[in-house]
Design a protein around this nucleic acid. Sequence first.
RNA 1: GCGAGAGUGGCGGAAUUGGUAUACGCACUGGACUUAGAAUCCAGCGGGGCAACCCAUGGGGGUUCAACUCCCCCCUUUCGCACCA
Length: 837
Amino acid sequence: MKISLDKNYYFNSIESKWQSFWEKENTFAANNTVENKPKFYCLEMFPYPSGRIHMGHVRNYAIGDAVARFKRLKGFNVLHPIGFDSFGLPAENAAIKNKTNPALWTKNNIDYMVSQLKELGFSYDWKRLVVTSDSAYYKWEQLFFLEMFKKGLAYRKISNVNWCDSCHTTLANEQVEDGKCWRCGSNATIKNMEQWFFKITDYAEELLNDLNGLKGWPDKVKTMQKNWIGKSSGLSLFFKIEGTDNCDEIEIFTTRPDTIFGATFIAMSPFHPLAKKLIINQEKISELEIMIHNSLISKDITEKEGFFTGSYAINPFTGNKIPVYIANFVLIDYGTGAIMSVPAHDLRDYEFAQKYGIEIKKVIKQSVEGKDDEIPFLLSGILINSKEFNGLFSEEAKEKISLYAEKMGIGKKVINYRLKDWGISRQRYWGCPIPVVYCEKCGIVPLNEEDLPLLLPDDVAFTGEGVSPLKKLESFVSVKCPKCGGNAKRETDTMDTFVESSWYFLRYTLLDRGKNIPFEGEDASYWMPVDQYIGGVEHAVMHLLYARFFVKALRDLGYFKLNEPFKNLLTQGMVVKNGAKMSKSKGNIVDPDGLIKKFGADTVRLFVLFAAPPEKDLEWNDSGVEGASRFINKFYKTVIAGYELLEDEGDILITEDKILKSDINHNIKEIIYKLGIIISKTETEMEGRYHFNTIISSSMELINEFNDFITLKSFKEGVLSKADQYLIKYFLNSVVLMLSPFIPHVCSELFEILNGSFLENESWPKIIDTGYVPKNCNIAVQINGKMRDLIVADINSDEFAVIEIALNSAKIKKYIEDKSLIKKTIYVKNKLLSIII
RNA sequence: GCGAGAGUGGCGGAAUUGGUAUACGCACUGGACUUAGAAUCCAGCGGGGCAACCCAUGGGGGUUCAACUCCCCCCUUUCGCACCA
């Protein structure tokens, strides 16, 4: 018996029915290891609980959910978790503004956002939810910190760090974009402070090399990381200072040892430890101080400036005296903080030398004869004015000069990285406390592991004034030293929130949260690496680099053997409206809540998947949403109409073998054939290209076509054989299954109507061969490369037969009166005939 | 400045390997149904031309029987880095 069905599509009741079903049944809970099923870890970057889900989230999670649901149908054991990256500044700023508590603000936001995610019907394993501001989570981060500290991977140093005055905290280098704070956009300045660092530079080479193994990552992201790491090899060379007894030397770094004979001055950063000492004229000291001051205010240097120290260095290759300058454009934290300047062959040195009238000495000429070299000449060439190295090509000279320097003990080949250690101290409250104390006697003392977690105190006043509220909390700051019991002060900085997001994907693998471990090594090894990671490209050199580092560090701490966390990465584009990123200030926000209420979750999800391929930006379009809604309505009605063609009594059970022998309606055969093509096309797309828009458009065509022929009068009046009915049901089930990763609610409903059972237990449709082969095909006929006619030929016709048909066509006859005019033909089977006359 | 992408109708986009450019959707136009509207359905929809045809994938060259697709030059645009020696 058929169950009663409604011919109209009411998304409200359908969506809430299936959402509560999934919740009650724990449909998407994943077990750690399932026999006979390969694992698939599908992960989307978790959100910051800012208050509401926005369209960018909807897009990100609709993509991930499509992948997760598809892989389930394909027989994988799928882990698809969600959580909240819940430490961070907005909570604390909101607390200051609204006189509330960050924990409370965060909790309310999470509760609301969870309800939104559930209303969108995403297939998460809710039992694995991770909230990073829970002490059960950050406890382990503190443990990792202690272990890294013991290994020297976490250390404290004084250095110039980026400071955001509006956020009242320091920032890592990766978190300064274009001289501005990544979060609030205000100008970053430089402060000389003592800070905690993670020694990511220890992993620079491995982070760089392993990019090659990340075949499933976009090249763009790999290039960005490669550039960020910025490996360069060159020579470090010592210059003696004239008039001193070799105790002071200036070490410089260069990637152009071949230009050493052209080095006519030394340029030194104002922050260089020797800077003050080398200044002979004491009046210049104030100039140095002004330069230092200016450099601290802004990283931007509008004009190269400097002055002569009065000291000279000796070029070890020429033996010449060359002046030592202090120059604002020389970076203190790259290389050695001092450079040999070769104005003839470096643009920056040239500009500086021009300005200050320093000697310019040419030592490289073009290898191409007859051309006058411009100065500065920046490319490789042939050495001149370089004594015994004259006549060598740059590449060869680099090697020989480096070897010579090493032999003479005045230099060594070195590799430099642009990447700097990750500064993780933040002078704010709402973050993971750093578990160390400063003892008057013992210095820096880590907490004992059994004293973890070091809880973030909640009896704090949020005034927004002055220093971090933790610093003002006497009960938190004053402690006894864990080592000697004497008076000590607690560290009051908290960790960068990118530390939490560096390992949350491991925490998801832990099922039993009661267990006193960060994650189960075995389970992490089973699930990791993440098979498909999906998120915004803005994290290319922040989160994605930190997480790679963190996994390698945990590996070296003995947690597992994993080298890389994310096997495949999809970076989805932004959701934009009127060409601009949605933001409150631009007033172009589209709120998902209103749309879900008006059209339903399936429609919203379908639109974000259909409107553009995932890696491109998506231009929001309200009437496009209506189009998606129209399609779902039509799809629902069509499936119901198809279902009504089937007989009332019993199931139609026919083996495939019998179908082949049966007399089947031609339309049905044809559509089953097309269905097969689309099933396989969808599978291909879902292997990694994920162009959901093309999958959906083919499905639209397929459904339109099916709808067209079942509504034909002749079809309605005809008699359907058992085999016809079997195939119609197969067709309906297949399209419902095929679209279920994108529009899961309506498909679950339709599947239940069709079969009285649940879609979640099914597998991806198999392609049925009814023996149908298209009888004929359209062949494009070109004459001299121009499209002239479209002819119909039997499928798989040979070239000769196709030429005959072509020559009989009136349009072709116009061009070719006589067969003998044909010089040449090219035939692409079933597709195209190209005739040359 | 350096590096990496992108440029196709009024709009979002399709053409995965060089083989019928503009699929699918939106918008628009006309029609049906309706007292009217909404919804739905049908038809049309790159430009020019009465037509035969011609022209069109940022522009200009090239390779090829055939180019959105490959090669060279240029323009525009997005993103990343920006004195990294």
